[in-house]
Structure formats: structure tokens, C-alpha cells
Nucleic acid binder design. Sequence first.
DNA 1: TACAATATAACGAACGTTCGGTATTATGTC
DNA 2: GACATAATACCGAACGTTCGTTATATTGTA
Lengths: 191, 191
Amino acid sequence: MAKAINENTALIEALFDIFRNHGYEGTTISLLSEVTGLQKSSLYHHFPKGKEDMLKAVVGFVSEKIHQHVITPLLDEEVNPEKRFSNLIATITRFYSDGRKNCLLNVLNLGDTKVEINKLQNDDYIAWLNALIQLGKDAGLDEPEAKNWAERFLVIVEGALVIQRLTNDLQTFERHMECEKKLFSQFSGQQ
Amino acid sequence: MAKAINENTALIEALFDIFRNHGYEGTTISLLSEVTGLQKSSLYHHFPKGKEDMLKAVVGFVSEKIHQHVITPLLDEEVNPEKRFSNLIATITRFYSDGRKNCLLNVLNLGDTKVEINKLQNDDYIAWLNALIQLGKDAGLDEPEAKNWAERFLVIVEGALVIQRLTNDLQTFERHMECEKKLFSQFSGQQ
DNA sequence: TACAATATAACGAACGTTCGGTATTATGTC
DNA sequence: GACATAATACCGAACGTTCGTTATATTGTA
């Protein structure tokens, strides 16, 4: 049973890796078949409703990851704000493979995005944003300051991924995360 | 003759609008045909080598636009730095339709990006970045400060577009541009 | 035997592309 | 100016391929 779960998550992780790299239109069943080692029909056994179902599974899987490894730790008041923030950066640095992997939030919202998918992703974004705002306030920012800072941080995360992908400069993401860390400890230290 | 040029640029602008909205894989010849009002075979008359040729034309077109309306004005020493910067923001706000339109730099560098396209885009990015660095120095920043600021600004532009597309909050882009304007006038004023 | 998982083979639809041919416009010649 | 010629722009129909999907068959496991 546990093995089955692991196999399933391994499968979904493989799908995730393709979707985040190629986008929805760029991801073909043939490609998913190659990467997973499963025949196309075997993929349809796991996801009877097809490609869109696979994407939904991936989005749900990522959503769980975000809540578990990003949002919950962000709200853990037993850890001091600065440590929480540096933990966050460590987590997302891993999650984006030092900026070499794309963000689903960026890749999927092109063209005629499925409304349902967009809604799921927007919910995750809002949850992440709110957790960041709370962290900002815990670090001494007032409400509007915290809102500005939180949104700005996520903007920089997404932007840094875009620029790194464009330039292939593998330090881009790290550079901007370091910069954010410094900024945070500035107003965190003033408290 | 002039009319022909206009028609051609109108055609390319239509293609541009589709590519930036749907990405390369998401853009189909049928869709381009619908939007331009030309039959598929007529599109092949203008771009005999097909879809990739259309993309190259679009990328070249945008590249020209960038040099003409972004880079050249950025380097115009007859205009004071703060004015140059606010002009830049006005230009790109128009270019991205207040953040409702995507950036090709983001949309095209997915999956198996054609190396050639990536190189063209990277060149434009570097040119833009260098012009910004020069502007930063003109505004009183030293070299490393200017470099950090310039890259950060472009990161925020790309990131704000991503977040606005995700949340559908039409003020996102404007908000961050205003923020950047304030930041610029701060260190520009210190000079 | 039963049932889940994988595989083979095939499906219609849509993909990017090509072809033969028709308007439309520009050029040359009288 | 008039008219044949050439070049350009456009079109409808079809091409071969790949898409996402499904029907049927085989394997592994309990």
C-alpha cells in the first residue's frame, strides 16, 4: 500500500516535471509516456479522463506540497521570523532546483487557461501571499507594508525564474533570494 | 509602397499578439488564420518556411521595437535620468497593455526552445539591461549598485506580469511600476 | 478465478504543410 | 492610354504526421 502511494507520487512527480518544463500545450502524451516508461494506455488507466486529469493531479500534488512545506512553516510562530524566512528560501530554492525549474503558476496560465486550474492556482497563491503577509507583520511591518513586501517577494521569485530561464545564468535566482534575505533581516532587525 | 509596409506590420502585429498570448506550442496556424483573416496557405505565402519563420519575424519585429522605443531613449543623455525612467515605464506599460499582455521573453523560453530564438531574445535582454545599468549610473549609482538595480527592475517587470496574469488583478503591474518609480527618484534625488 | 496493471493496435480529429489555381496588382511595350 | 505580361497576394482542398483517446489483448498477482 505504502509502495503504491510512493509509486503514484513518483509518477505524478514525473508528470509534474514535464508540465512545468513544457507547459500544457507543449506536453504530449507521447512525451509523458517516454518519461514515465509507461505506455500511453497505461497512463489512461491511472488517469481515465486523460491529459487534463493528469494536470489536475499535478496541480493538486503541488498544492499539497505548498501547504505542507511552505505555508504551514511560514505560520509557525514557534520559529522566529528571520529563521522562518530563510527556511522558506531554502525550501523554494530546492523546489525550483536553484531556479533551473519553472513555476507551474507561470507556465499554465497562458492562452485559454482552464478556469478551474486557474482558480486552484490562484487559491494557492493567495494562501502563500497571506502567510507571507503574516510573516511580515510578525517581523514588525504594519499591514500595508507587509502586503507590499509580500507581493513584491513573490513577484521577484517569479521574475527571477523567468530571467534565469532566459539568460541561462544559473546564479540569478540565488542572487535575488540572497538580496531578499538581506532586506528581510533589515526590517526584521529594526523591530 | 508605404501601404504595403503598413499591411505587413499589421500582419506581424497580429501574429505577435497571438504568440505572446498562447506561446509557441499553443499557437496554431488555424488560430493565426482566424485572427489575421488570411487563409493558412496565404500565411505560407508570406512566411514560406512556416510557423517558425512567423515566430522569427515576430521576434525580429519586437527586437526593433525594443531598440527604437526602449533602449535608444534610455541612453539619451539630453533627457534627465528620472524623466528617462518615467518615460520607460510609460512605454512598457503601453507595450504590455497595463500588464494584460505577456512578454515574449517569458512565453517562448519553454520546453525545447529553439536555440536561435533564445539567442536573439537574450541579446535584446542584455542590451536592455546594459542601457538600464547606464541609466542607473547616470542617476548616481556606482557600477555594482546599478547592475543590481537594473537586473532587479527587469525581474520585477517579468514577475509582475506573471502575477497579474495569475490573479487577474489589473492593478498589479501598475502598482509595481509606481513602486519602482519612487525607488528610482529616491536614489536619483540623492545625487 | 478475479482483478489490477500494462501492452498492442487502432481511432477520428487536429496539427503544420504543400499544391494547383485564381484574383489582384505592378510592369513593360505599343 | 491600351493591352499583354509578369509578379504578387490569396484561396480551397488535400497531404502526411501527430495529437489525445479508446478498444482489445496480455501479463502479473492475490
